[in-house]
């Protein structure tokens, strides 16, 4: 799948949030979107998801603009995961994930055994099958986030869009989330996520979009975009970029030092 963004702008009451964005992606790929608070990262992904209507420009999925899709068709290949901790469910894990299949289930019928089977497989894959009959409201933040991930993935979308998926999670749960993203990429999917952690972008994405003040932005391969200079400029800080060695593997790390 190819996603092309052409001259994309979004404005609230004539106040532009972002302007004239241009970039394109081809699956398999992971794009991380970086930028300071309030720069419009969330607004951008909501535009890509069709939750917010773009003001100008084009969002093309395999050459077809987002506005030209039937909702049902569009959301059969695009799925969304909300920021961790921003969503709750009053149902059990199984019932919550089943709702992800709602568009495929006859409105007047209950889910079939085959639907439940699909959900069970997805829970198995994400390692939360044992939580199946628990209430989501009783789970930890990390477990709940995995449940919502399962609900997003159960339709087997080609594109997954996530809003700060690793926010509010501890190290282990962050890794669980990011590893899932990695696995999806290796299966040929296109993943787009917002993050406040440049080091996650470094490790897990091959493309980066860095949003900056005054409608400036940078887009490109991760190594070219996440540099000391760009981090310092975007976040208006002084930062150190170093390397950590674990066994034979080198890891790049970024440490924020001081405010400029």
């Amino acid at each position: 799948m190819i996603l092309e963004i052409k001259n994309l702008s979004f404005a609230y009451d004539k106040q532009f949030i972002f302007k004239d964005l241009n970039f394109s992606l081809e699956s398999p790929s992971v794009l991380s979107i970086l930028g300071p608070n309030g720069i419009g990262k969330t607004t951008l992904i909501k535009c890509l998801l069709g939750i917010k209507k773009k003001t100008e420009g084009e969002i093309l999925f395999d050459g077809k603009d987002i506005d030209k899709f039937e909702k049902k068709d569009f959301y059969s290949f695009v799925a969304y995961l909300k920021q961790g901790g921003k969503e709750t469910s009053i149902y059990t894990v199984l019932d919550t994930v089943l709702l992800g299949l709602a568009s495929q289930i006859n409105p007047l019928l209950k889910p079939k055994d085959s639907d439940i089977e699909k959900v069970n497989n997805m829970l198995e894959e994400l390692g939360i099958y044992h939580l199946k009959d628990k209430y989501v409201s009783k789970l930890s933040g990390g477990e709940a986030q995995m449940v919502f991930m399962a609900r997003a993935l159960v339709r087997e979308p080609e594109i997954l869009i996530l809003d700060e998926p690793e926010s509010n999670l501890d190290y282990r749960n962050q890794l669980l989330m990011l590893d899932t993203i990695d696995r999806l990429k290796s299966r040929g999917k296109l993943i787009i996520f917002n993050t406040h952690y440049p080091e996650h972008a470094l490790r897990y994405s091959n493309k980066v979009l860095m949003l900056n003040k005054n409608y400036k932005y940078k887009f490109g391969n991760t190594a070219d975009i996440i540099t000391k200079e760009n981090i310092e400029e975007t976040y208006r800080i002084k930062a150190a970029v170093g390397e950590l060695k674990d066994g034979d593997t080198m890891y790049k790390d970024i440490i924020p030092l001081s405010i400029v």
Binding site: L49, A79, G100, R155
Partner: peptide
């Protein structure tokens, strides 16, 4: 009872 924004992305009317 599903989150307002999320339910919009589920492909249901």
């Amino acid at each position: 009872t599903v989150d307002e924004e999320v339910v919009k992305t589920m492909g249901v009317n």
